[in-house]
Design a binder for these strands. Structure first.
Lengths: 254, 254
DNA sequence: TCAAATATTCATTGTCTGATGAAATATTTT
DNA sequence: AAAATATTTCATCAGACAATGAATATTTGA
Protein backbone atom coordinates (compact mmCIF):
# COMPACT_ATOMS: atom_id res chain seq x y z
CA UNK A 1 0.00 0.00 0.00
CA UNK A 2 1.87 2.99 -1.26
CA UNK A 3 1.65 6.55 0.05
CA UNK A 4 -1.07 8.79 -1.33
CA UNK A 5 -0.58 11.54 -3.86
CA UNK A 6 2.04 14.03 -2.75
CA UNK A 7 0.04 16.83 -1.28
CA UNK A 8 1.76 17.00 2.07
CA UNK A 9 2.57 20.65 2.41
CA UNK A 10 5.87 21.08 4.20
CA UNK A 11 5.99 22.18 7.80
CA UNK A 12 7.99 25.20 6.85
CA UNK A 13 9.29 26.36 3.52
CA UNK A 14 12.64 27.97 3.96
CA UNK A 15 12.09 30.97 1.71
CA UNK A 16 15.66 31.94 1.06
CA UNK A 17 17.04 35.45 0.61
CA UNK A 18 15.28 36.89 -2.42
CA UNK A 19 17.15 40.18 -2.28
CA UNK A 20 20.81 39.32 -2.74
CA UNK A 21 22.61 40.88 0.24
CA UNK A 22 24.88 43.74 -0.79
CA UNK A 23 28.53 42.77 -0.38
CA UNK A 24 29.69 43.97 3.01
CA UNK A 25 33.08 45.24 4.01
CA UNK A 26 35.40 42.93 5.86
CA UNK A 27 36.97 43.66 9.22
CA UNK A 28 35.94 45.65 12.21
CA UNK A 29 33.50 48.43 11.34
CA UNK A 30 34.48 51.99 12.34
CA UNK A 31 33.03 53.97 15.24
CA UNK A 32 32.25 51.11 17.64
CA UNK A 33 33.94 51.73 20.97
CA UNK A 34 33.68 48.25 22.48
CA UNK A 35 33.46 49.22 26.15
CA UNK A 36 32.93 46.52 28.71
CA UNK A 37 29.54 47.87 29.66
CA UNK A 38 28.34 48.60 26.17
CA UNK A 39 28.38 45.49 24.04
CA UNK A 40 28.54 45.99 20.30
CA UNK A 41 25.15 45.90 18.67
CA UNK A 42 25.97 43.02 16.34
CA UNK A 43 25.95 40.78 19.36
CA UNK A 44 22.55 42.01 20.49
CA UNK A 45 21.15 41.75 16.97
CA UNK A 46 22.26 38.15 16.85
CA UNK A 47 20.57 37.42 20.17
CA UNK A 48 17.37 39.11 19.04
CA UNK A 49 17.30 37.21 15.78
CA UNK A 50 18.04 33.93 17.51
CA UNK A 51 15.33 34.61 20.08
CA UNK A 52 12.77 35.18 17.36
CA UNK A 53 13.79 32.11 15.39
CA UNK A 54 14.19 29.69 18.28
CA UNK A 55 10.85 30.72 19.76
CA UNK A 56 9.10 30.14 16.48
CA UNK A 57 10.75 26.91 15.35
CA UNK A 58 12.62 25.40 18.29
CA UNK A 59 16.28 24.56 18.57
CA UNK A 60 16.42 22.07 15.70
CA UNK A 61 14.12 24.02 13.41
CA UNK A 62 16.57 26.87 13.11
CA UNK A 63 19.87 27.05 11.26
CA UNK A 64 22.63 29.41 12.25
CA UNK A 65 22.57 30.66 8.67
CA UNK A 66 18.99 31.85 9.09
CA UNK A 67 19.85 33.59 12.33
CA UNK A 68 22.91 35.20 10.76
CA UNK A 69 20.89 36.33 7.78
CA UNK A 70 18.21 37.92 9.94
CA UNK A 71 20.87 39.63 12.05
CA UNK A 72 22.59 40.81 8.83
CA UNK A 73 25.86 39.24 9.85
CA UNK A 74 28.13 36.41 8.72
CA UNK A 75 27.64 32.99 10.29
CA UNK A 76 31.23 32.99 11.50
CA UNK A 77 30.36 35.85 13.82
CA UNK A 78 27.85 33.71 15.68
CA UNK A 79 30.58 31.21 16.34
CA UNK A 80 32.92 33.99 17.37
CA UNK A 81 30.56 35.21 20.07
CA UNK A 82 28.80 32.04 21.14
CA UNK A 83 31.06 29.25 19.98
CA UNK A 84 28.38 26.69 19.16
CA UNK A 85 24.73 26.73 18.22
CA UNK A 86 23.96 25.39 21.68
CA UNK A 87 25.99 28.20 23.20
CA UNK A 88 23.87 30.70 21.30
CA UNK A 89 20.69 29.06 22.53
CA UNK A 90 21.84 29.12 26.13
CA UNK A 91 22.78 32.78 25.85
CA UNK A 92 19.34 33.62 24.51
CA UNK A 93 17.65 31.67 27.26
CA UNK A 94 19.71 33.24 30.03
CA UNK A 95 19.55 36.85 28.83
CA UNK A 96 16.08 37.71 30.02
CA UNK A 97 15.82 35.08 32.75
CA UNK A 98 17.87 37.23 35.13
CA UNK A 99 15.56 40.20 34.69
CA UNK A 100 12.35 38.23 35.00
CA UNK A 101 13.52 36.28 38.03
CA UNK A 102 14.41 39.46 39.84
CA UNK A 103 11.09 41.11 39.02
CA UNK A 104 9.15 38.08 40.20
CA UNK A 105 11.00 37.78 43.49
CA UNK A 106 10.69 41.49 44.16
CA UNK A 107 6.98 41.30 43.42
CA UNK A 108 6.41 38.42 45.84
CA UNK A 109 8.53 40.14 48.51
CA UNK A 110 6.58 43.36 48.13
CA UNK A 111 3.26 41.58 48.39
CA UNK A 112 4.28 39.61 51.47
CA UNK A 113 5.42 42.76 53.22
CA UNK A 114 2.27 44.69 52.34
CA UNK A 115 -0.13 41.88 53.24
CA UNK A 116 1.46 40.87 56.53
CA UNK A 117 -0.55 38.12 58.18
CA UNK A 118 -3.52 38.80 55.88
CA UNK A 119 -1.71 36.95 53.11
CA UNK A 120 -4.00 35.20 50.62
CA UNK A 121 -3.47 32.62 47.90
CA UNK A 122 -4.92 34.92 45.31
CA UNK A 123 -2.60 37.69 46.39
CA UNK A 124 0.47 35.49 46.11
CA UNK A 125 -0.52 34.09 42.74
CA UNK A 126 -1.22 37.58 41.51
CA UNK A 127 2.14 38.87 42.64
CA UNK A 128 3.87 35.95 40.96
CA UNK A 129 2.10 36.33 37.63
CA UNK A 130 1.94 40.08 37.41
CA UNK A 131 5.52 40.84 36.28
CA UNK A 132 5.20 38.47 33.38
CA UNK A 133 1.83 39.73 32.29
CA UNK A 134 3.01 43.31 32.53
CA UNK A 135 5.94 42.58 30.25
CA UNK A 136 3.72 40.66 27.88
CA UNK A 137 1.00 43.30 27.82
CA UNK A 138 3.56 45.99 27.08
CA UNK A 139 3.89 44.57 23.59
CA UNK A 140 7.68 44.32 23.24
CA UNK A 141 8.19 41.59 20.63
CA UNK A 142 11.45 40.61 22.31
CA UNK A 143 9.71 39.59 25.52
CA UNK A 144 6.97 38.10 23.50
CA UNK A 145 9.39 35.81 21.73
CA UNK A 146 11.17 35.01 24.93
CA UNK A 147 8.01 33.81 26.66
CA UNK A 148 7.13 31.63 23.71
CA UNK A 149 10.61 30.17 23.92
CA UNK A 150 10.27 29.37 27.60
CA UNK A 151 6.92 27.77 26.90
CA UNK A 152 8.45 25.49 24.33
CA UNK A 153 11.36 24.50 26.52
CA UNK A 154 8.98 23.78 29.38
CA UNK A 155 7.25 21.21 27.20
CA UNK A 156 10.42 19.74 25.75
CA UNK A 157 11.27 16.28 27.04
CA UNK A 158 14.83 15.07 27.54
CA UNK A 159 16.59 18.38 28.21
CA UNK A 160 13.70 20.82 28.74
CA UNK A 161 13.11 19.90 32.35
CA UNK A 162 16.73 20.31 33.30
CA UNK A 163 17.06 23.65 31.55
CA UNK A 164 13.92 24.98 33.19
CA UNK A 165 15.06 23.77 36.58
CA UNK A 166 18.48 25.33 36.46
CA UNK A 167 17.00 28.63 35.40
CA UNK A 168 13.81 29.01 37.39
CA UNK A 169 13.74 26.69 40.40
CA UNK A 170 14.99 29.40 42.77
CA UNK A 171 11.98 31.58 42.02
CA UNK A 172 9.53 28.72 42.17
CA UNK A 173 10.71 27.82 45.64
CA UNK A 174 10.24 31.42 46.67
CA UNK A 175 6.67 31.23 45.37
CA UNK A 176 5.99 28.01 47.22
CA UNK A 177 7.31 29.51 50.44
CA UNK A 178 4.83 32.33 50.15
CA UNK A 179 2.02 29.93 49.35
CA UNK A 180 2.79 27.84 52.43
CA UNK A 181 2.12 30.90 54.54
CA UNK A 182 -1.28 31.34 52.92
CA UNK A 183 -1.99 27.60 53.11
CA UNK A 184 -0.38 26.50 56.38
CA UNK A 185 -1.95 23.05 56.40
CA UNK A 186 -1.16 22.21 52.82
CA UNK A 187 0.29 18.82 52.02
CA UNK A 188 3.59 19.18 50.19
CA UNK A 189 2.60 16.89 47.35
CA UNK A 190 -0.60 18.79 46.73
CA UNK A 191 1.34 21.99 46.69
CA UNK A 192 3.81 20.79 44.09
CA UNK A 193 1.13 19.34 41.86
CA UNK A 194 -0.85 22.55 42.09
CA UNK A 195 2.18 24.46 40.99
CA UNK A 196 2.57 22.05 38.13
CA UNK A 197 -0.93 22.86 36.90
CA UNK A 198 -0.25 26.56 37.26
CA UNK A 199 2.93 26.16 35.28
CA UNK A 200 1.14 24.34 32.49
CA UNK A 201 -1.63 26.90 32.20
CA UNK A 202 0.85 29.74 32.21
CA UNK A 203 3.06 28.09 29.67
CA UNK A 204 0.35 27.45 27.13
CA UNK A 205 -0.87 31.00 27.54
CA UNK A 206 2.56 32.40 26.85
CA UNK A 207 3.25 30.16 23.91
CA UNK A 208 0.79 32.12 21.79
CA UNK A 209 -0.15 29.47 19.30
CA UNK A 210 -3.41 31.16 18.35
CA UNK A 211 -5.23 28.00 19.31
CA UNK A 212 -7.80 29.69 21.55
CA UNK A 213 -8.57 32.33 18.92
CA UNK A 214 -9.41 29.60 16.48
CA UNK A 215 -11.25 27.39 18.97
CA UNK A 216 -13.41 30.25 20.22
CA UNK A 217 -14.00 31.51 16.70
CA UNK A 218 -12.29 34.82 17.47
CA UNK A 219 -14.07 35.49 20.74
CA UNK A 220 -10.86 35.14 22.79
CA UNK A 221 -7.62 36.70 21.64
CA UNK A 222 -4.38 35.03 22.70
CA UNK A 223 -2.70 38.42 22.81
CA UNK A 224 -5.19 39.97 25.24
CA UNK A 225 -3.09 39.67 28.37
CA UNK A 226 -5.37 41.85 30.44
CA UNK A 227 -8.25 39.46 29.90
CA UNK A 228 -5.98 36.50 30.59
CA UNK A 229 -4.56 37.85 33.82
CA UNK A 230 -8.00 38.77 35.17
CA UNK A 231 -9.14 35.19 34.65
CA UNK A 232 -6.01 33.23 35.37
CA UNK A 233 -5.48 34.56 38.88
CA UNK A 234 -8.86 33.49 40.29
CA UNK A 235 -8.91 30.25 38.33
CA UNK A 236 -5.55 29.11 39.64
CA UNK A 237 -6.00 30.48 43.14
CA UNK A 238 -9.26 28.60 43.42
CA UNK A 239 -7.56 25.38 42.36
CA UNK A 240 -4.87 25.81 45.00
CA UNK A 241 -7.42 26.48 47.71
CA UNK A 242 -9.51 23.50 46.79
CA UNK A 243 -6.58 21.13 46.69
CA UNK A 244 -4.41 22.44 49.49
CA UNK A 245 -6.96 23.21 52.20
CA UNK A 246 -7.68 19.81 53.73
CA UNK A 247 -10.75 20.91 55.66
CA UNK A 248 -13.00 21.70 52.68
CA UNK A 249 -13.11 18.36 50.92
CA UNK A 250 -9.75 18.22 49.16
CA UNK A 251 -8.99 15.77 46.44
CA UNK A 252 -11.41 13.02 45.63
CA UNK A 253 -10.66 9.36 46.23
CA UNK A 254 -7.25 7.82 46.98
CA UNK B 1 34.91 39.68 23.70
CA UNK B 2 35.24 36.19 22.45
CA UNK B 3 33.16 33.19 23.47
CA UNK B 4 34.31 31.26 26.51
CA UNK B 5 36.11 27.96 26.45
CA UNK B 6 34.21 25.38 24.48
CA UNK B 7 32.38 23.49 27.15
CA UNK B 8 28.90 23.80 25.71
CA UNK B 9 27.70 20.27 25.74
CA UNK B 10 25.53 19.61 22.72
CA UNK B 11 21.77 19.38 23.05
CA UNK B 12 21.86 15.88 21.73
CA UNK B 13 24.73 13.78 20.56
CA UNK B 14 23.63 11.65 17.69
CA UNK B 15 25.27 8.44 18.82
CA UNK B 16 25.41 6.64 15.54
CA UNK B 17 25.04 2.91 15.02
CA UNK B 18 27.96 1.37 16.86
CA UNK B 19 27.03 -2.14 15.85
CA UNK B 20 27.33 -2.22 12.05
CA UNK B 21 23.92 -3.37 10.86
CA UNK B 22 24.05 -6.78 9.31
CA UNK B 23 23.46 -6.60 5.54
CA UNK B 24 19.80 -7.26 4.94
CA UNK B 25 18.23 -9.04 2.05
CA UNK B 26 16.67 -7.03 -0.72
CA UNK B 27 13.11 -7.41 -1.91
CA UNK B 28 9.92 -8.39 -0.22
CA UNK B 29 10.51 -10.58 2.82
CA UNK B 30 8.82 -14.00 2.88
CA UNK B 31 5.79 -14.96 4.94
CA UNK B 32 4.03 -11.59 5.15
CA UNK B 33 0.48 -11.93 3.82
CA UNK B 34 -0.29 -8.20 3.42
CA UNK B 35 -4.05 -8.30 3.92
CA UNK B 36 -6.05 -5.10 3.92
CA UNK B 37 -6.91 -5.44 7.59
CA UNK B 38 -3.52 -6.62 8.69
CA UNK B 39 -0.88 -4.15 7.66
CA UNK B 40 2.64 -5.43 7.43
CA UNK B 41 4.59 -4.86 10.60
CA UNK B 42 7.32 -2.80 8.98
CA UNK B 43 4.81 -0.02 8.57
CA UNK B 44 3.78 -0.18 12.21
CA UNK B 45 7.37 -0.39 13.35
CA UNK B 46 8.13 2.77 11.42
CA UNK B 47 5.20 4.57 13.03
CA UNK B 48 6.24 3.40 16.48
CA UNK B 49 9.80 4.49 15.98
CA UNK B 50 8.72 7.84 14.56
CA UNK B 51 6.33 8.35 17.45
CA UNK B 52 9.11 7.74 19.95
CA UNK B 53 11.57 10.01 18.18
CA UNK B 54 9.21 12.87 17.35
CA UNK B 55 7.85 12.93 20.88
CA UNK B 56 11.35 13.10 22.32
CA UNK B 57 12.96 15.59 19.94
CA UNK B 58 10.23 17.28 17.93
CA UNK B 59 9.79 17.37 14.18
CA UNK B 60 13.07 19.09 13.37
CA UNK B 61 15.12 17.21 15.92
CA UNK B 62 14.59 13.90 14.18
CA UNK B 63 16.05 12.59 10.96
CA UNK B 64 14.36 9.96 8.88
CA UNK B 65 17.63 8.05 9.07
CA UNK B 66 17.26 7.75 12.84
CA UNK B 67 13.68 6.60 12.54
CA UNK B 68 14.61 4.09 9.87
CA UNK B 69 17.46 2.80 11.96
CA UNK B 70 15.28 2.35 15.02
CA UNK B 71 12.64 0.60 12.92
CA UNK B 72 15.37 -1.60 11.39
CA UNK B 73 14.40 -0.60 7.90
CA UNK B 74 15.88 1.35 5.00
CA UNK B 75 15.07 5.06 4.74
CA UNK B 76 13.56 4.52 1.31
CA UNK B 77 10.79 2.51 2.93
CA UNK B 78 9.66 5.50 4.92
CA UNK B 79 9.28 7.44 1.71
CA UNK B 80 7.52 4.49 0.13
CA UNK B 81 4.84 4.46 2.83
CA UNK B 82 4.60 8.12 3.83
CA UNK B 83 6.10 10.02 0.94
CA UNK B 84 7.72 12.84 2.93
CA UNK B 85 8.94 13.38 6.45
CA UNK B 86 5.95 15.60 7.04
CA UNK B 87 3.68 12.85 5.77
CA UNK B 88 5.19 10.51 8.31
CA UNK B 89 4.63 13.02 11.08
CA UNK B 90 1.00 13.53 10.12
CA UNK B 91 0.43 9.79 10.03
CA UNK B 92 1.87 9.42 13.51
CA UNK B 93 -0.25 12.25 14.83
CA UNK B 94 -3.46 10.93 13.29
CA UNK B 95 -3.04 7.28 14.22
CA UNK B 96 -4.06 7.44 17.86
CA UNK B 97 -6.14 10.61 17.63
CA UNK B 98 -9.11 8.68 16.24
CA UNK B 99 -9.07 6.23 19.12
CA UNK B 100 -8.66 8.84 21.81
CA UNK B 101 -11.32 11.14 20.39
CA UNK B 102 -13.83 8.32 20.32
CA UNK B 103 -13.04 7.26 23.86
CA UNK B 104 -13.39 10.80 25.15
CA UNK B 105 -16.70 11.45 23.44
CA UNK B 106 -18.09 8.12 24.62
CA UNK B 107 -16.97 8.92 28.13
CA UNK B 108 -18.67 12.31 28.18
CA UNK B 109 -21.83 10.83 26.66
CA UNK B 110 -21.91 8.09 29.25
CA UNK B 111 -21.48 10.52 32.09
CA UNK B 112 -24.17 12.87 30.81
CA UNK B 113 -26.63 10.02 30.50
CA UNK B 114 -25.87 8.64 33.94
CA UNK B 115 -25.93 11.99 35.71
CA UNK B 116 -29.07 13.37 34.10
CA UNK B 117 -29.93 16.77 35.54
CA UNK B 118 -27.52 16.23 38.47
CA UNK B 119 -24.64 17.01 36.13
CA UNK B 120 -21.61 18.58 37.85
CA UNK B 121 -18.51 20.33 36.62
CA UNK B 122 -16.30 17.86 38.39
CA UNK B 123 -18.15 14.97 36.81
CA UNK B 124 -17.75 16.38 33.33
CA UNK B 125 -14.07 17.16 33.79
CA UNK B 126 -13.53 13.72 35.18
CA UNK B 127 -15.22 12.05 32.25
CA UNK B 128 -13.15 14.11 29.84
CA UNK B 129 -9.82 13.36 31.48
CA UNK B 130 -10.37 9.76 32.46
CA UNK B 131 -9.77 8.05 29.10
CA UNK B 132 -6.42 9.74 28.74
CA UNK B 133 -5.30 8.98 32.25
CA UNK B 134 -6.39 5.40 31.91
CA UNK B 135 -4.31 4.98 28.78
CA UNK B 136 -1.38 6.73 30.41
CA UNK B 137 -1.61 4.76 33.65
CA UNK B 138 -1.71 1.50 31.74
CA UNK B 139 1.95 2.00 30.92
CA UNK B 140 1.98 1.37 27.17
CA UNK B 141 5.04 3.30 25.96
CA UNK B 142 3.29 3.94 22.64
CA UNK B 143 0.53 5.97 24.25
CA UNK B 144 3.07 7.52 26.51
CA UNK B 145 5.05 8.82 23.55
CA UNK B 146 1.93 9.90 21.77
CA UNK B 147 0.78 12.09 24.65
CA UNK B 148 4.18 13.71 24.88
CA UNK B 149 3.97 14.41 21.18
CA UNK B 150 0.57 16.06 21.49
CA UNK B 151 1.90 18.13 24.35
CA UNK B 152 4.74 19.40 22.24
CA UNK B 153 2.54 20.24 19.28
CA UNK B 154 0.12 22.06 21.57
CA UNK B 155 2.96 24.39 22.56
CA UNK B 156 4.38 24.77 19.09
CA UNK B 157 3.80 28.19 17.54
CA UNK B 158 3.21 28.71 13.82
CA UNK B 159 1.68 25.35 12.89
CA UNK B 160 0.92 23.75 16.27
CA UNK B 161 -2.35 25.57 16.82
CA UNK B 162 -3.71 24.63 13.44
CA UNK B 163 -2.74 20.98 13.78
CA UNK B 164 -4.31 20.74 17.23
CA UNK B 165 -7.47 22.42 16.02
CA UNK B 166 -7.99 20.19 13.02
CA UNK B 167 -7.51 17.12 15.16
CA UNK B 168 -9.22 17.87 18.44
CA UNK B 169 -11.68 20.77 18.14
CA UNK B 170 -14.65 18.46 17.65
CA UNK B 171 -14.08 16.82 21.02
CA UNK B 172 -13.39 20.09 22.78
CA UNK B 173 -16.70 21.47 21.61
CA UNK B 174 -18.40 18.36 22.93
CA UNK B 175 -16.74 18.99 26.30
CA UNK B 176 -17.81 22.62 26.34
CA UNK B 177 -21.39 21.63 25.56
CA UNK B 178 -21.44 19.38 28.58
CA UNK B 179 -19.89 22.08 30.74
CA UNK B 180 -22.54 24.59 29.68
CA UNK B 181 -25.15 22.28 31.13
CA UNK B 182 -23.32 22.20 34.46
CA UNK B 183 -22.67 25.96 34.34
CA UNK B 184 -25.79 27.40 32.70
CA UNK B 185 -24.95 31.02 33.43
CA UNK B 186 -21.35 30.87 32.31
CA UNK B 187 -20.04 33.62 30.10
CA UNK B 188 -18.65 32.19 26.86
CA UNK B 189 -15.32 33.95 27.17
CA UNK B 190 -14.79 32.67 30.68
CA UNK B 191 -15.60 29.19 29.49
CA UNK B 192 -13.07 29.26 26.68
CA UNK B 193 -10.33 30.68 28.86
CA UNK B 194 -11.02 28.10 31.51
CA UNK B 195 -10.66 25.38 28.94
CA UNK B 196 -7.40 26.95 27.87
CA UNK B 197 -6.02 26.65 31.40
CA UNK B 198 -7.20 23.07 31.57
CA UNK B 199 -5.51 22.35 28.28
CA UNK B 200 -2.23 23.83 29.48
CA UNK B 201 -2.22 21.90 32.72
CA UNK B 202 -3.06 18.68 30.95
CA UNK B 203 -0.47 19.23 28.30
CA UNK B 204 2.41 19.83 30.67
CA UNK B 205 1.40 16.81 32.68
CA UNK B 206 1.43 14.59 29.63
CA UNK B 207 4.69 15.93 28.28
CA UNK B 208 6.61 14.08 30.99
CA UNK B 209 9.67 16.27 31.20
CA UNK B 210 10.55 15.13 34.68
CA UNK B 211 10.45 18.72 35.80
CA UNK B 212 8.20 18.14 38.79
CA UNK B 213 10.29 15.21 40.00
CA UNK B 214 13.30 17.44 40.09
CA UNK B 215 11.53 20.47 41.51
CA UNK B 216 9.93 18.47 44.31
CA UNK B 217 13.15 16.59 44.97
CA UNK B 218 11.56 13.27 44.08
CA UNK B 219 8.42 13.73 46.14
CA UNK B 220 6.19 13.87 43.05
CA UNK B 221 6.65 11.45 40.17
CA UNK B 222 5.63 12.61 36.72
CA UNK B 223 4.66 9.06 35.85
CA UNK B 224 2.24 8.64 38.74
CA UNK B 225 -0.96 9.19 36.80
CA UNK B 226 -3.20 8.04 39.61
CA UNK B 227 -1.89 10.80 41.86
CA UNK B 228 -2.18 13.28 39.02
CA UNK B 229 -5.74 12.43 38.12
CA UNK B 230 -6.90 12.56 41.72
CA UNK B 231 -5.55 16.10 42.00
CA UNK B 232 -6.16 17.48 38.58
CA UNK B 233 -9.90 16.89 38.53
CA UNK B 234 -10.72 18.90 41.66
CA UNK B 235 -8.14 21.57 40.86
CA UNK B 236 -9.51 22.25 37.41
CA UNK B 237 -13.17 21.83 38.35
CA UNK B 238 -12.72 24.35 41.12
CA UNK B 239 -11.20 26.84 38.68
CA UNK B 240 -14.13 26.45 36.30
CA UNK B 241 -16.64 26.93 39.08
CA UNK B 242 -14.95 29.99 40.42
CA UNK B 243 -14.65 31.64 37.01
CA UNK B 244 -17.86 30.56 35.35
CA UNK B 245 -20.39 30.93 38.16
CA UNK B 246 -21.12 34.65 38.15
CA UNK B 247 -22.90 34.69 41.51
CA UNK B 248 -20.00 33.68 43.72
CA UNK B 249 -17.52 36.45 43.03
CA UNK B 250 -16.18 35.58 39.57
CA UNK B 251 -13.04 37.13 38.20
CA UNK B 252 -11.40 39.98 40.02
CA UNK B 253 -11.17 43.51 38.68
CA UNK B 254 -11.69 44.63 35.07
C1' DT C 1 1.96 -20.58 -14.61
C1' DC C 2 2.88 -16.23 -15.25
C1' DA C 3 1.96 -11.21 -14.98
C1' DA C 4 0.77 -7.68 -11.87
C1' DA C 5 0.99 -5.79 -7.37
C1' DT C 6 3.42 -5.29 -3.17
C1' DA C 7 7.36 -4.74 -0.18
C1' DT C 8 11.97 -4.04 0.45
C1' DT C 9 17.05 -2.48 -0.07
C1' DC C 10 20.77 -0.19 -2.75
C1' DA C 11 23.12 3.49 -4.73
C1' DT C 12 23.20 7.92 -5.59
C1' DT C 13 21.76 12.94 -6.01
C1' DG C 14 22.07 17.83 -4.91
C1' DT C 15 21.56 20.66 -1.15
C1' DC C 16 22.21 22.17 3.42
C1' DT C 17 24.55 21.92 7.85
C1' DG C 18 27.62 23.48 11.75
C1' DA C 19 32.07 24.58 12.14
C1' DT C 20 36.89 26.63 11.35
C1' DG C 21 41.26 28.91 9.85
C1' DA C 22 42.77 32.79 7.62
C1' DA C 23 42.57 37.42 6.18
C1' DA C 24 40.95 42.18 6.61
C1' DT C 25 39.95 46.25 9.14
C1' DA C 26 39.36 48.92 13.20
C1' DT C 27 40.44 50.29 18.14
C1' DT C 28 43.27 50.16 22.28
C1' DT C 29 47.49 49.66 24.63
C1' DT C 30 52.34 50.09 24.96
C1' DA D 1 53.94 54.20 15.63
C1' DA D 2 54.19 49.57 16.61
C1' DA D 3 52.10 45.84 18.88
C1' DA D 4 48.18 43.76 20.73
C1' DT D 5 43.44 43.06 20.75
C1' DA D 6 38.72 43.19 18.98
C1' DT D 7 35.33 42.62 15.37
C1' DT D 8 34.14 41.22 11.06
C1' DT D 9 33.82 38.61 6.38
C1' DC D 10 35.57 35.02 3.16
C1' DA D 11 36.40 30.55 1.58
C1' DT D 12 35.97 26.17 2.48
C1' DC D 13 35.34 21.57 4.79
C1' DA D 14 33.53 17.02 5.78
C1' DG D 15 29.52 15.12 7.10
C1' DA D 16 24.46 14.85 7.24
C1' DC D 17 20.20 15.57 5.08
C1' DA D 18 15.68 14.32 2.49
C1' DA D 19 14.55 12.40 -1.51
C1' DT D 20 14.41 9.30 -5.68
C1' DG D 21 15.01 5.78 -9.44
C1' DA D 22 16.31 1.33 -10.13
C1' DA D 23 16.97 -3.41 -8.68
C1' DT D 24 15.29 -7.41 -6.27
C1' DA D 25 12.28 -10.58 -4.01
C1' DT D 26 7.78 -12.26 -2.62
C1' DT D 27 2.69 -12.73 -2.86
C1' DT D 28 -1.59 -12.38 -5.28
C1' DG D 29 -4.77 -13.49 -8.62
C1' DA D 30 -6.14 -14.43 -13.39
Amino acid sequence: MKAKAKKNKPVRTKARAVVAAQPRRRGRPPGRPARDDMTPDSRERILDAAEAQFSAHGFWGVTIREVAEQARVDTALLHYYFDTKRGLFDAVFARRAEIMNKERIDSIDAYERSAGSAITVEGVINSFLEPMHLRAAQGDPGWHNYFALVAQVNNTPVWGGETMGKTFDRVIHRLLDALRKALPEADEKDLYWSYHFLSGALTLTLSQTGRIDRLSNGLCKSGDFTAIHARMVPFIASGFERLCRPRSGGRSRK
